[in-house]
């Protein structure tokens, strides 16, 4: 029983990281229909920023987290401005290739500038373990879960309650109509990138703390899995991304716990394909048919 609980706890903490990343994918996809391949690398940038400020400037955890969010938001906005904006009216596949190019650039640029070595993430916090009905829960796991949930609630509030959030929803439904009623499309898209990238930055710092190791290629696999999570939950849907993230996290730890660690990624993809076939629009999505 307590192993099940233990795996659930591990799955939830990993899942909340995926969920934070998935939110960025889903928001960007919702608004410009682009699979932002570079999103996982923004998360890597967040982790490196955290590593740098904690080591060099002796930041404690919270300032490191917040500054990483600001830094990543800026990076996201700059990338959108330089690489994606010129392609807004181009075939979508061209934008996709550009996103892949940006991803390569970030991975290899970081490797080139700071070497591709794996490094230890500084322990900005003493690790404490609690016993929770027989399962071992660390303070970092609790932190990850709580911070992620708080961020998701904040995001939901921004999207539901603020003017910018309403603009985001309007643009994702119909950009032309949104423009006609005076919404600044460019600014709305920049804002979307800023929000998504900030969440990725937070996820980066927290995963550094949790796994205690970072490297320039760390964003690749989680990035793809987070995208899978977004598709799983229903791409374009904020609650879907959160749900998908948790599902993937729990699935992954469960497979590992059952002794199939070698197949943990395969299981994720099998579930993805099954979901796509049964409910192409994802768990929470609605199917839309083309009008003839």
């Amino acid at each position: 029983m307590h192993t099940v609980l233990q795996q659930l706890v591990n799955g939830l903490s990993l899942g909340s990281i995926y969920a934070l990343l998935a939110l960025g994918y889903t928001m960007v996809y919702g608004i410009i229909k682009l699979i932002n391949f570079a999103h996982g690398d923004i998360y890597m940038l967040g982790a490196f920023w955290g590593y740098y400020v904690i080591n060099q400037w002796h930041f404690s955890f919270w300032p490191a987290l917040l500054s990483a969010m600001v830094f990543c938001a800026l990076a996201g906005v700059i990338i959108e401005y330089l690489a994606y904006r010129p392609l807004r009216n181009s075939p979508r596949i061209a934008a996709l290739i550009t996103a892949i190019g940006v991803s390569f650039l970030l991975e290899n640029g970081m490797s080139y500038l700071f070497s591709s070595n794996v490094r230890n993430f500084p322990q900005a916090m003493h690790v404490k373990s609690y016993n929770f009905f027989g399962a071992k829960v660390s303070n970092i796991q609790i932190l990850i879960l709580v911070v992620s949930i708080v961020l998701m609630i904040l995001l939901q509030l921004i999207i539901r309650r603020t003017k910018m959030g309403k603009a985001m929803r309007a643009v994702s439904v119909d950009p032309d109509a949104a423009q006609l009623i005076g919404i600044n499309i460019d600014r709305t898209i920049s804002f979307t990138f800023a929000l998504g990238s900030a969440l990725a930055g937070a996820a980066g710092v927290m995963i550094g703390l949790y796994y205690n190791s970072i490297d320039p290629l760390m964003g690749m696999t989680p990035g793809i899995k987070a995208f899978v999570a977004a598709v799983l939950g229903g791409i374009g849907l904020i609650p879907g991304a959160a749900l998908g993230g948790f599902v993937i996290g729990i699935l992954e730890t469960a497979t590992q716990a059952l002794g199939f660690s070698a197949f943990k990624d395969a299981v994720v993809y099998v579930v993805l394909i099954i979901i796509l076939l049964v409910r192409p629009a994802g768990i929470l999505g609605k199917n839309i048919k083309e009008k003839v």
Partner: peptide, 20 residues
């Protein structure tokens, strides 16, 4: 190592200026 950096830059530039 610079190779992949230049490669990815080339890729982005070609796509931005010649998306088709």
């Amino acid at each position: 190592t610079l190779r992949m950096v230049l490669y990815s830059l080339a890729l982005i530039l070609i796509m931005v200026f010649k998306p088709s």
